[in-house]
Amino acid sequence: MLDNEELEEMLKIICVVRKHLMTGGPRRLPFTVPPLVFSALRLVRQLESQDGDIAGEDVPATPRAVFQILNQTIEVLSSVPCPELALRLYLQCAETASDCDLEPVAYELFTQAFILYEEEIADSKEQVTAIHLIVGTLQRINVFGVENRDTLTHKATGYSARLLKKPDQCRAVYACSHLFWVDDLDGIKDGERALLCLRRALRIANAAQQMANVTRGNSGPVTLFVEILNKYIYFFEKGNPHITPSDIQSLGELINNEMQSDNGNTTIHSDPFFTSTLRYIRFQKQKGGLMREKYDPIKL
């Protein structure tokens, strides 16, 4: 572990490097800012492990102050413009702030990421990537209280449901179910809201299937339904009391019906993904014990 004097020197170096890098221009900043950010985040973790603050003139002495500098540094990227890179860096900083138990800092960084998404990221493909980055990062963060977490998850699910393409909407919405049931965090196990996300994703998948029926004359692939079925199975095994064997049974029967209604395709279980899922269910039944009791009511 570095002593206080060495940490103080590293802080000074980062401040000097930042001052020079900010003059690099829009073509260089996307390449020079990320290494600076990650070096500063490594220093934040070292500062957090110290018993006391670092004293020094004109040098930030706390993790909170370093995050303030990082916020200002990343903000420059949005004017380059490199909004997607800036969003990634904001989320990385938010995760580090969470590890340092700095809830207000993590919340502010997430807010900046949301503002970037709303105002700067217009391309549909970039929006899909950004949403999954936001959801994945928020899922790993455990520093937020109930009110702040509810605000952020509400925004994330809202953005997910407003993506341009139905399949993208569906996948983003069912990914949001993991925001309400985080297996590693005992305090975040809202089975009802996780189920609501899955049901909403199912409605979107059904709308996408109907659109495929209109445009192509058949029901199209059942991939979205099978993906949602696998999410049902995941939460069922994790002990979500709101997901029952009858839910899995009904969704499996729906997939069977969709596959049978496909013109020219009357073979049930011909979808490889669905076949693999059914094989997994049978495998769980063969285990015996509690797992067999859980899966025994499912007849697929």
Score class of each variant (00 low, 15 high):
L2K: 07
E9S: 11
M10T: 07
L11Q: 06
K12W: 05
K12M: 03
I13Y: 12
V16Y: 03
V17G: 03
L21W: 00
T23E: 15
R28D: 10
T32S: 05
T32I: 01
P34F: 01
V37N: 05
F38H: 12
A40K: 06
L41C: 13
R42C: 08
R42Y: 05
Q46A: 14
L47S: 04
G52L: 11
I54Y: 06
G56Q: 10
V59D: 02
P60A: 09
A65N: 04
V66Q: 05
Q68Y: 08
N71C: 14
T73Y: 04
V76A: 08
V80M: 07
P83W: 09
P83L: 09
E84A: 10
L87D: 05
L87V: 08
R88S: 11
L89I: 07
A94G: 10
A94R: 06
A94E: 09
A94W: 05
E95P: 02
T96R: 09
A97N: 02
S98F: 08
S98Q: 08
D101G: 02
P104F: 11
A106T: 04
A106F: 02
T111Y: 03
F114I: 10
E119L: 07
E120K: 15
I121W: 05
D123M: 12
Q127C: 09
A130W: 10
I131S: 06
I131N: 05
I131P: 03
G136P: 12
G136E: 15
N142W: 09
F144N: 07
E147V: 14
N148G: 03
R149T: 09
T151W: 02
H154T: 15
H154A: 15
A156H: 00
Y159L: 14
S160V: 01
A161I: 12
R162W: 02
L163N: 04
L164A: 15
L164G: 05
K166V: 04
K166W: 04
D168K: 07
Q169R: 15
C176W: 01
C176D: 01
L179H: 00
W181C: 06
V182W: 01
D183M: 13
D186S: 03
G191N: 10
G191T: 07
E192A: 14
E192D: 13
L195N: 08
C197P: 06
L198G: 04
A201K: 11
A201W: 09
A208G: 08
A208S: 12
Q209E: 10
Q210Y: 10
S219A: 10
F225V: 03
F225K: 01
V226A: 09
V226P: 06
V226E: 06
E227K: 10
I228M: 08
N230P: 02
K231N: 14
K231F: 12
E237F: 02
N240K: 00
H242W: 07
H242L: 07
I243D: 00
T244D: 00
D247K: 00
D247N: 14
S250H: 04
G252Y: 00
E253D: 15
I255G: 00
I255Q: 01
I255H: 01
Q260M: 13
D262F: 09
N265L: 04
N265W: 08
T267D: 12
T267L: 11
T267K: 11
I268H: 08
T277G: 03
L278Q: 11
R279W: 05
Y280L: 14
I281Y: 04
F283Q: 14
F283D: 15
Q284T: 12
G288E: 03
M291L: 11
R292T: 08
E293F: 07
K294V: 02
K294C: 01
K294N: 02
Y295D: 03
L300M: 15
